[in-house]
Design a protein around this nucleic acid. Structure first.
Lengths: 209, 209
DNA sequence: ATCTTGATGGTACAGCCGTATCACGTACGT
DNA sequence: ACGTACGTGATACGGCTGTACCATCAAGAT
């Protein structure tokens, strides 16, 4: 046989090419030939590693979600040596805002996938809503911890707030994406809402435990 | 000449056909032939009234925005004979949530346009962000009125809250659209946030003025 | 009555898309 | 050493897309 190739690695390379061109020209305008050219390979190779375009798109979606997870992790790590709940929450929510090229691409392509998943039975909702659900649970847990630590108002429904914050972040992200709002103003709105949640209970000391 | 035809009316008929098929199969999958078939006319006629697909899409967007405006107005009117600020705000925000077929189509197609406008220079942001900006101003004004009437907390920045509410509503709408959340839970979250804003100033009587 | 012009139908054309097919080289198992 | 399976290239094919072209009918103007 010829040089044995790591299929998983090659598939990821091609998936990254897909995301790059999708971020530039829109997911709807992405063809297999574009992906091949962007990845520097022949059209045949894209066919070889992903037999069909549908599989390519699905893998692209998974790859995008994975990269975003790493981005959030990195952001939390960059927030300091031992980031508190608020820092973690801010890292999660601002990571999705289109503030730089990577997050801009992420938001655009992810929204494109979301739109496609509504009508395309292939990109079924099943794999699509898994990650948002996980984010919602993680955020809820962070808010609960903040409440127990006395950092956040204890009279709030943590899950309700988590859902609201994620929807707020997504909505703000879209408005930034279409140029209606600047990233700074979006962050201002987000911070404002976090300030209302992260208020110590009246007369409570921020005790550990 | 043959039967003189009202061009504006015919264009609206075709635009409605466009929106119907876009709501069913996704805006990305809409071709001129589909629109023609849905409208019950020949392909040639679609070309005749909209010379190019780009112009058809642009008119479709305007028509969608207009229909949504009427929907909001109708909702406000249905909220009672003399709806107060809170009722008006609720009508605006819930009208965009995908609770029935019409709003579902609206949200899907509008989001599709938003995604397209990011990369397509034709659907420039110029006409696209006009309506959201108007909604933001209208909502801000309603919140200010509520504050002056003592119905809403006076210590809030009305515009900041308006921006947040619109982004929240948009984000919730998308999550409902992709099937992550039920319309009821979205309304719950929205109502919850409105409850926090629409609180009378401590010790203030809801006097008119 | 004829000419003009708006409205409509049918259809052809060039281009792109995803997919399939054929061909070839190369490196490992035997 | 050799055959077999993997990796890769080139290209063809059918279908769909937006657009352009040609023809026709109808009704008002002259």
């Amino acid at each position: 046989m010829p040089k044995r190739v790591d299929h998983a690695e090659r598939r990821d390379q091609i998936a990254e090419a897909l995301l790059r061109v999708a971020g530039r020209r829109g997911l709807h305008a992405v063809g297999m030939r574009d992906v091949a050219a962007e990845a520097g390979v022949s059209l045949r190779l894209v066919q070889y590693y992903f037999e069909t375009k549908e599989k390519l798109l699905l893998h692209g979606l998974r790859h995008l979600a994975a990269r975003f997870g790493e981005r959030v992790t990195a952001r939390i790590g960059a927030a300091g040596p031992a980031p508190g709940p608020r820092e973690r929450v801010e890292a999660m929510l601002t990571a999705a805002l289109p503030t730089d090229e990577e997050s801009r691409t992420f938001h655009l392509v992810y929204t494109s996938y979301a739109v496609l998943s509504v009508t395309d039975p292939a990109l079924a909702a099943q794999p699509f809503i898994k990650d948002p659900d996980a984010a919602e649970s993680a955020l809820t847990e962070l808010l609960r911890q903040a409440q127990e630590s006395g950092l956040a108002r204890p009279d709030l429904d943590a899950r309700l707030e988590a859902v609201g914050l994620l929807a707020l972040s997504a909505g703000l992200g879209t408005s930034v994406l279409v140029g209606q709002r600047t990233p700074e103003s979006a962050i201002t709105v987000l911070t404002h809402h976090l300030d209302r949640i992260f208020q110590p209970a009246p007369g409570a000391q921020p005790a550990a435990g």
